[in-house]
Design a protein around this nucleic acid. Structure first.
Length: 411
RNA sequence: GCGGGUGUCGCCAAGUGGUUAAGGCCUCGGAUUGUGGUUCCGAUAUUCGUGGGUUCGACCCCCAUCACCCGCCCCA
């Protein structure tokens, strides 16, 4: 035997015993999102690298060091690390701005990031997500959050916390960045290396640093004063307040978290996350927000948008394991030819059916039937000659003999 | 990129220097050539991630290496 080939680091097989959980969540996504008028879109897994550099932002870790990129025919191509940029690309390219707003799209599929794998984090992982284009009013943000919550509820998940925040618009955010930088300036040398970097490139990211020493600095009164100051401009504040009113009236519980800053550059105004305490350190199942400038940034006409993405693996790890469904019928017969035909008849009647293909002994066949099926359909010489079939309920032991055409009355 | 942990059958595992490497689950065969799920019997690791070393002797000790897991970072 030669050496076996194993899955790549950070990737996983989704095995048959788990696949029904995936189908379950995908089906719920379709059901719930459809109710809100969202249509599924499927964009390619590979895109031109520039899409992500321009879309996600080249100061982000995702684009900086986590992309699977390669050269092909003089083009740089990348496996998508997320799908908002791809959907926006498609929206622009297919002229969807001509459609009556809002344009509501959802997707599911594999994403790729070259990171160190750990619990809740793989290199190939899967997301379900939604994007809504064309509505600047906070009702859109609220609808998207409401829908996320209802989707999670439909999966039976309720021990979840919604966090929201507003990042303001580019204008007020710029002012906030300036203030933040000036209040932190005296402590610059005490900040960790990463934070010093962020200080220059992306000051907002400073707020969610987990290094203790940095946290202490952020807890200082004068820093807290800046963090807690309502830096966002009047329009942004109104947007945020209206959103909260919608959420209150929809009975959605949320926590306001001023430190919530999403890592992708394209967000403005509303950002939100949904977390679970049962997940270990990678505890966000859903992350999203508003990105009013992305469409324009990618060459489309200025179009407001909101969306979110959820990590399927994380969702599924929170679901209760279900027992594998049994077959309706397993045929027990010493006449493989006849059984073969009967099996197909049963399938055509709509029953999931298997039979013994390897000519095992009667008792072995019945043993197998009792493991995998609800009913054993017994077709022996006696039954064949009489044109009947014996149907045995494998949980009660009850057995009835009927003509083949009346099988449906028993099953 | 930086820390920490673990590798014994398909799965869960005992064994921590001394003849043949427990046990359980699953799988397969038999008891039982047309009646199962219970029971009973039997089979299944020339070998303990891999390569060296120490030793009379290594799953056990040492070194190296690989793989996986967890945490940081980042994100879903």
């Amino acid at each position: 035997m030669s050496e076996i080939i194993k899955v790549l680091k950070g990737t996983k097989d989704i095995l048959p015993q788990d696949v029904d959980m995936w189908q379950f969540t995908e089906k719920k996504a379709w059901e719930v999102f459809s109710k809100y008028g969202f249509k599924e879109i499927r964009t390619p897994i590979i895109e031109v690298t520039e899409l992500f550099a321009r879309g996600v932002g080249d100061t982000t870790d995702i684009v900086n060091k986590e992309m699977y990129s390669f050269e092909k025919s003089d083009r740089s191509i990348t496996l998508r690390p997320e799908n908002t940029a791809g959907v926006v690309r498609s929206y622009i390219e297919n002229g969807m701005s001509r459609l009556s707003a809002p344009v509501k799209l959802w997707y599911k599929g594999a994403m790729f990031r070259y990171e160190r794998p750990q619990a809740g984090r793989q290199r190939q992982f899967h997301q379900v997500g939604v994007e809504m284009f064309g509505i600047k009013q906070p009702a859109a943000d609220a609808e998207v959050i409401l829908m996320a919550v209802n989707f999670l509820k439909s999966l039976g998940l309720c021990d979840l916390e919604v966090e929201i925040n507003s990042l303001g618009c580019p204008k007020c955010r710029e002012e906030f960045k300036t203030k933040l930088k000036s209040v932190l300036k005296p402590y610059y040398n005490d900040l960790c290396e990463d934070c010093q970097n962020r200080y220059e490139k992306n000051p907002l990211r400073l707020l969610d640093c987990k290094v203790e020493d940095c946290k202490k600095i952020f807890e200082k009164p004068e820093v807290q004063a800046v963090i807690n100051s309502d830096f966002i401009c009047e329009e942004c504040a109104q947007h945020y307040n209206e959103l909260k009113t919608y959420l209150d009236r929809a009975n959605i519980k949320y926590v306001e978290n001023k430190l919530l800053v999403r890592g992708l550059d394209y967000y403005n105004r509303t950002v939100f996350e949904i977390k679970s305490n049962n997940l270990g350190s990678q505890n966000a199942v859903c992350g999203g927000g508003r990105y009013d400038n992305l469409v324009e940034q990618l060459g489309g006409e200025s179009t407001p948008a909101v969306g979110f993405a959820m990590g399927m693996e994380r969702l599924i790890s929170l679901l209760d394991k279900k027992e594998a469904a049994k077959l309706d019928c397993f045929i027990v017969s010493n006449n493989t030819q006849e059984a073969f035909i009967l099996a197909e008849e049963l399938r055509n009647m709509g029953y999931t059916t298997e039979m013994d293909l390897s000519n095992k002994k009667f008792t072995k066949q019945l043993e197998k039937a009792s493991k995998v099926a609800n009913y054993a359909v017994i077709l022996g010489e006696d039954e064949i000659n009489a044109g009947v079939v014996s149907v045995k309920n494998l949980s009660t032991g009850e057995q009835k003999t009927v003509k083949r055409e009346y099988i449906m009355e028993i099953l």
